[in-house]
Design a protein around this nucleic acid. Structure first.
Length: 279
DNA sequence: TTGTGTTTTATTGCCTCC
DNA sequence: GGAGGCAATAAAACACAA
């Protein structure tokens, strides 16, 4: 700011309250004050002379503007700020009556009170925004953490499904191989003839399988701990006419299962993925 | 003491409302 | 059109490390 514009610029200061605006040069002390002003500035903040010295004086504009030209921009005293803060807490908007009353009590220009409230509202708004930001950030971080946990859990379960599916495939293949061997040499397996009715190779033909080999105890189960095979609990519903595949298998509720062809794709998927129930 | 960052006081321009 | 609010900004006052 040009120091030459020091003191008043009455042409541009009528906007809000119809009073002249202070225009002071940057740096230095207003020349309208001498050593007294400098010594006043040297005092502590609480000891500083307030902008206006008494309520009566501020109401006498002639006195104030003509005889007690203010110093440079000054901070309000702690008492003034305290009263303004209390007033702001009660109501952050300033009606004209309250503005005048506060100005009178504080020994300030009503315009200064209005400006203080305006700046105080701006600070309050900034603080609110910061708090809102912190809340949103915290919420976001929490959601992000939950999301990460769910992703990890999803990956873990997916790996488990793949592993179990692979195990099932291997066991089904072993069963198929065993069944095929029994076709070639039934006597070697010592399988009772009646077992033919219960077991099927899934290869499209009649097969005799050693039932003892097909009995799985719960400890030997290919299923993960806590899972049980579920299936047609009423017993095997398969026949020699079944068009068995290597991957299909069916499970008995008594722990016996046989290779079996699944005629429908949905059933195959069930056997691979969905036939588990958690205990 | 000085440089620098922050806070406070104040102004300006624009907008809305009555 | 005047009054008042707000955002942006200037500038003084202040805090503090080096």
């Amino acid at each position: 700011m040009d120091p030459a514009r020091l003191i008043f610029d009455s042409s541009s200061s009528q906007r809000h309250h119809g009073q002249p605006m202070l225009l002071l040069g940057s740096g230095g002390v207003s020349p309208v004050f001498g050593g007294a002003a400098i010594s006043a500035l040297a005092e502590g903040a609480n000891k500083r002379r307030p902008f206006f010295t008494s309520p009566d004086e501020i109401l006498e504009e002639e006195y104030y503007y003509d005889e007690q030209l203010p110093e440079k921009k000054r901070r309000l005293t702690t008492d003034q700020v305290h009263l303004l803060e209390r007033s702001f807490e009660a109501e952050n908007k300033l009606e004209p009556e309250r503005k005048s009353e506060l100005a009178r009590k504080l020994g300030l220009q009503p315009r200064q009170v209005a400006v203080w409230f305006q700046n105080r509202r701006a600070r309050w708004k900034t603080k609110q925004l910061e708090q809102d930001f912190d809340r949103l950030k915290s919420s976001y971080n929490s959601l992000l953490s939950d999301h990460d946990s769910l992703l990890k859990e999803n990956d873990r379960l997916h790996s488990q499904v793949i592993s179990m599916t692979e195990t099932l495939k291997n066991k089904a293949a072993a069963l198929t191989a065993a069944a095929a061997a029994s076709v070639n040499d039934p006597a070697s397996l010592g399988v009772p003839k009646k077992a033919e009715d219960r077991l099927s190779t899934g290869s499209g033909g009649s097969a005799v399988v050693d039932a003892n080999q097909l009995v799985y105890s719960s400890e030997e189960s290919c299923l993960p701990e806590g899972y049980h095979c579920m299936g047609p609990v009423d017993g095997p519903v398969h026949s020699e006419e079944d068009d068995a595949s290597d991957e299909g298998c069916n499970y008995y509720s008594d722990g016996i299962f046989t290779a079996e062809h699944h005629q429908h794709q949905e059933e195959e998927e069930d056997a691979q993925l969905g036939w588990w129930v958690w205990n």
